[in-house]
Design a protein around this nucleic acid. Sequence first.
DNA 1: TTATGCCGGGACAAATGGCGTCCCATAGGA
DNA 2: TCCTATGGGACGCCATTTGTCCCGGCATAA
Lengths: 347, 347
Amino acid sequence: MDRFVSLQRKIAPEIARLLDIRYSILRHVHFYQPIGRRTLSQQLTVKERAVRSELEFLRRQGFVSVSSSGVTLTQDGEVIFQELGQYVRELREFARLEQLLERLLPIRKIVVVAGDSRRDPAVKKDMGRAVVRILREIVEDGDIIAAGGGTTMVEVAKAIVPSGWPKHITVVPTRGSLGEEVEIQADSIAVEMAKLLGGTYRVLNVPDDLHPETISRIINEPRIKEILELIKTARIVIHGVGTLEEMVKRRNIPREEMETLESLGAVAEMFGYYFDKDGNMVYYTPSMGIRPEDLQGKKTISVAGGANKAQALLAVVKRYSREALVIDEAAALKIMEIEDRGKEKWQ
Amino acid sequence: MDRFVSLQRKIAPEIARLLDIRYSILRHVHFYQPIGRRTLSQQLTVKERAVRSELEFLRRQGFVSVSSSGVTLTQDGEVIFQELGQYVRELREFARLEQLLERLLPIRKIVVVAGDSRRDPAVKKDMGRAVVRILREIVEDGDIIAAGGGTTMVEVAKAIVPSGWPKHITVVPTRGSLGEEVEIQADSIAVEMAKLLGGTYRVLNVPDDLHPETISRIINEPRIKEILELIKTARIVIHGVGTLEEMVKRRNIPREEMETLESLGAVAEMFGYYFDKDGNMVYYTPSMGIRPEDLQGKKTISVAGGANKAQALLAVVKRYSREALVIDEAAALKIMEIEDRGKEKWQ
DNA sequence: TTATGCCGGGACAAATGGCGTCCCATAGGA
DNA sequence: TCCTATGGGACGCCATTTGTCCCGGCATAA
């Protein structure tokens, strides 16, 4: 049944809208019957005519009865309402989650993908696809896209179907590499994405965990300088978010640096910058590439999965508004949990 | 899972159409890839633009890839195609059955209801609802409806939701009663229906298994005569179909009459007329009411469930065209079986 | 009894978006 | 090299949906 629902969400997502309104009408009628068409429309904030059309449908199906005193559920209607309950919960849970989160965070569009990416690798693929779907909606001819690194971003790149993309897209990395494995470096991912998008790429090809002096010298190299300029002008940014533990494991971070980070309360990493749980930038590794403040004015798509990323996401995401956020169910639930707790404390 | 599908069919029937076209595109692409939009459109007999819209959707979802050589399934597309297969089979099986039967029989609209009404009484209720749904579509202000008797017709009456019906409907029985139990007599059902439809009724209130002479006298009674006239002018007829065994069990049919019927090859009964399996009328009990030939020019809805009714349905239904036929799954499958066998013999 | 307010349903103009149908540049195969 | 089938753009049309009225009915309160 679970497979069924997800299958349906993929192949016929428009039914969600349909079910939503029909179910909410049934529910409302169930609780407030007999109730008039107009009252229904007001309380559901659905246009009168739409309510009317749906009522007509429901009446045809024999689920509601319409009399001069208002709309009532028939026996069939009561049954279908009960049955539909669990179904809609399944099918619409994410949509509700997404709506709640969108109200909570400064993000235009939030997509919640079923499952937990830490338990099922396929979930990351789904997240990748979700990102690509969003990218398809916003990308335009001649765009410059800055892509970050990380295992999730690898799946984003893989999820690109090379067909029907605008022309003259340039993909650049968000920053240099940080001593990670080649496959998950921003550079590699930018190359991969550019190929699949049918566009061009420019990469730094330089590690940026060098000595600060070396870095400032490299930055002035004409080729590097030009690319860094390009990165700054990117209209679209796609990036993952890291937790402290992850970064420590993945990168060659010296012991004392790690201790510093911990003492500063760092919980999230983005572009080599570290943030505490309130979103304050507490540390950064000297590097070249995008800075968090550069995100302003860009369309930013953030992506991360797993309950452990929830705290990091909140830290990183609250400061700057974003175009879209793609997370998995585990992360979404965790975020809701944290935020709810926060609210209780606050009240 | 089964409940799921039937739930969906009830609450959002429009998705069937959607799934149908999307699935058939996926299937066609799967087998003929790469294939062009136009070829696809021609071979599926779907308008070019519709194919295009769906392809666009499928591309957005990442299921197909579109290149200059045509449309191809992506890996995701192949997976979804496989998964969708069994789902669509479930969801659309009846639709396919219905289409096949509609091509086979002279009936405008055939509705197949899930299940076997002989095993699960709830199925009969579903059939009743289906009949009512059809009735809603065709009934008009001032109509005269002739309703037959039988247990299935009882469910039809019960399924009527008294709301939103046209005005000035008159319900009459198809014929007098035949010594059956009161509840399943055409008279009682006409009364029940009329009440729920918010209309009026006229009933015969006379058993018609009387001596032929008595009958011909009664027919000339002014009140009876008038009602019989009314019955003849009915625009809509709703009736069940009986098998020989059923009739023998239900009515007080004398032994010798039954033997006559058997020897004549009677397998079906309608309005007190008996038919052999090729649809020839072989016998009739003297009675008053509708005759089979009166059906011409009327909108007739026939309803029957159970595999045992298949033969009777075929006999009764083939001779005169009908507006609609409502059967259960068991009857539908049996009909297909009989017809297929017939075809093989014929070829 | 009468007045009032909410009820459903009919009606209809406006708008939306899907649909049908072209054309065109192009790429890949003959 | 040409030709055919490809996708995609464009555009006008039409059907359906949508937004808004209004009307008559019915129930309830005065």
